[in-house]
């Protein structure tokens, strides 16, 4: 490590930070990043200090790329950098900023460091310290990328869990009438969950009719049809009749072409007709209010 790098880091740290943050507040002239959101400044500042500590430690230990176990060093550096990077990536995701902007911020810091290094060097800058700094930032970029991906994966799995929970409500439509609106993809796992919820509700409310609405199911293939049939059979065993609603005209055509027969299940085109049917079965009807007697 040339003395110039550690000197630059020590003496010009505050100046570098100020310069970096100032330039990040506007879109870069070469388009490598757009201006940093004000809420990103704090995480960036924190990252800067951790990074400087890491660079300084490495410089004081005279570490070179070739000789001193770069892998062990990288692990240390990664562990130290993980919390601030994680925070930065989380903020960026929350603010819906792009990952390439964040990478742009980091690489711009590299650019500033190099510039400061060259400006301060009395004689030619040592090759290995250039290589080393470059390598460091490569690591950081890679780590940032991995963290951002991990963050996104976590969001996706959280969302699919919440969709799973949200999308199988069993609604009590009226006395002894339940409504099960199905939305989205019905696979084996969801089908089981739907059946569980429904049977529980039928038993609890002593439902005589269940309206299953399929308006939100994009494709009814043989597998989905089979799941629905099993749900219907189980509901019947508990004494609830089932009214299917919301099969689209093209869905109906497809089902008959496939050769799937829903047998003696009552089916109505719209939810409205299905509800009317359910009321009829339970001996109720919706009627206009009579003029109230004076």
């Amino acid at each position: 490590m040339t003395p110039s790098l550690s000197q630059v880091l020590k003496h010009r740290q505050d100046e570098l930070l100020e310069h970096w943050l100032r330039d990040l507040s506007q879109t870069s002239s070469d388009g490598s990043f757009s201006s940093a959101h004000p809420e990103l400044i704090e995480p960036l500042r924190e990252l800067f200090y951790v990074l400087m500590t890491q660079l300084d430690q490495a410089a004081s230990r005279e570490i070179s790329l070739a000789t001193d176990q770069p892998s062990r060093l990288e692990r240390e550096q990664q562990t130290a950098l993980e919390p601030p990077l994680k925070q930065l990536v989380a903020e960026q995701a929350r603010l819906q900023r792009s990952l390439s902007d964040t990478l742009g911020f980091l690489l711009y810091l590299k650019h500033l460091l190099f510039k400061a290094l060259f400006a301060a060097a009395d004689q030619a800058v040592e090759e290995r310290s250039i290589l080393w700094l470059d390598h460091c930032f490569e690591q950081i970029a890679r780590q940032t990328f991995d963290l951002a991906l991990a963050q996104r994966d976590r969001y996706i799995s959280e969302q699919s869990i919440s969709i799973m929970e949200l999308s199988t409500p069993v609604l009590r439509l009226w006395h002894q009438i339940l409504l099960l609106p199905l939305v989205g993809v019905i696979d084996t796992g969801r089908a089981r969950q739907i059946t569980d919820h429904l049977l529980e509700a039928i038993a609890k409310y002593e439902a005589r009719v269940t309206v299953i609405d399929l308006t939100g199911v994009p494709i009814i293939d043989t597998s989905v049809a089979q799941h629905i049939m099993k749900t219907i059979d189980a509901a019947r065993l508990l004494g609830s009749r089932v009214v299917l609603t919301g099969i689209s005209p093209e869905g109906a055509q497809t089902l008959t072409k496939l050769g799937i027969r829903f047998g003696d299940v009552i089916s109505r085109a719209s939810l409205r007709a299905g509800i009317a049917e359910a009321l009829l079965i339970t001996g109720k009807r919706i009627a206009a209010m009579e003029a109230s007697p004076r």
Binding site: I219, S248, E250, G251, Q253, T254, K257, L258
Partner: peptide
């Protein structure tokens, strides 16, 4: 109708 049939 065709779209649904192919998708199915």
């Amino acid at each position: 109708a065709y779209q649904t049939r192919l998708a199915t």
